[in-house]
């Protein structure tokens, strides 16, 4: 689980176009990227920069129109729906911005759902460790509507961790939370990388959230335009401002808010 030389995922010449012919819009333009295993990577960029599309392509939720995507050694573009579903189920964990949990299932059932779908028994010791780490011990029998927003996102993180996936993708996981709960959830993601050896990729537009990551990739106009190792919130904000100043030449105007 610890960091190694092999990337957890990578994209080579990744293109994604919407529409066709003259009206085609290029959301990703020949992106090459490697996601290092055992690290916390943040993808930032203004609205419409393609950061969500990049995540969706890396996670097997969306089909690229060109290039190659690898999760481990598996090339995704040749996989059919069934194989992609299995890949997501067995090797990838998700945390979405909102509506992460099934309202009819308890917190615990939500956490073990991917394993249950696959017909695998979730390792009880591991589950206990995850639940303890995320401080959910007394919430396991609750239904989602009995949990606060922060608790719901923690359950979502626990679900992503429970199956020990190769990769966890988090799409604006704190977008709907107040700053305290948001910091808590981000802290847990951070700990899952440090203590549990997880690989996490997070899409965000919030410099504060990005500062929890090991590496920040900046996306604009469908290309990776910059990277920042060991970011602080200020450094990220500074980079973002530079885009603003340079705006127009290479980078589109960043939108003030989320997609």
């Amino acid at each position: 689980m610890a960091a190694s030389g092999e990337p957890a995922a990578r994209a080579v010449g990744l293109c994604k176009a919407y529409g066709s012919g003259d009206t085609a819009v290029l959301a990703l333009d020949r992106v090459d990227v490697e996601i290092d295993a055992g690290r916390f990577t943040a993808i930032m960029g203004p609205s419409g920069s393609g950061k969500s599309t990049l995540m969706h392509c890396l996670a097997g939720l969306d089909k690229p129109t060109g290039g190659e995507v690898y999760v481990g050694d598996t090339e995704l573009s040749r996989l059919g729906d069934k194989a992609l579903t299995r890949l997501r189920r067995d090797r990838i964990g998700f945390v979405f911005q909102a509506f992460n949990l099934l309202p009819t299932l308890t917190a615990e059932e939500n956490i073990t759902l991917p394993g249950d779908i696959a017909g695998r028994r979730t390792d009880a010791d591991w589950l206990r460790q995850v639940v303890e780490t995320l401080n959910l011990g007394d919430r396991l029998r609750h239904r989602p509507h009995e949990l606060s927003g922060g608790q719901q996102q923690r359950v979502a993180v626990a679900r992503a961790l429970a199956a020990r996936p190769q990769l966890i993708f988090a799409d604006e996981p704190t977008g709907n939370l107040d700053s305290r709960s948001g910091a808590e959830v981000l802290g847990f993601l951070r700990r899952s990388v440090d203590e549990l050896g997880q690989t996490v990729v997070m899409v965000t537009h919030d410099p504060n959230a990005a500062s929890f990551a090991d590496l920040v990739l900046f996306l604009a106009d469908g290309r990776i335009v910059d990277r920042l190792e060991g970011p602080t919130a200020d450094a990220v904000l500074e980079r973002m401002r530079r885009f603003d100043v340079r705006g127009g030449s290479q980078v589109a105007q960043p939108a003030p808010d989320a997609d």
């Binding site: 579903t85 299995r86 189920r89 964990g93 979405f96 509506f99 992460n100 309202p103 779908i117």
Partner: peptide
Amino acid sequence: TREIGLLRAIGLARSQ
């Protein structure tokens, strides 16, 4: 619809 999307994302097959 959203639940179905979520289920599919976390690995529920179409047949399931």
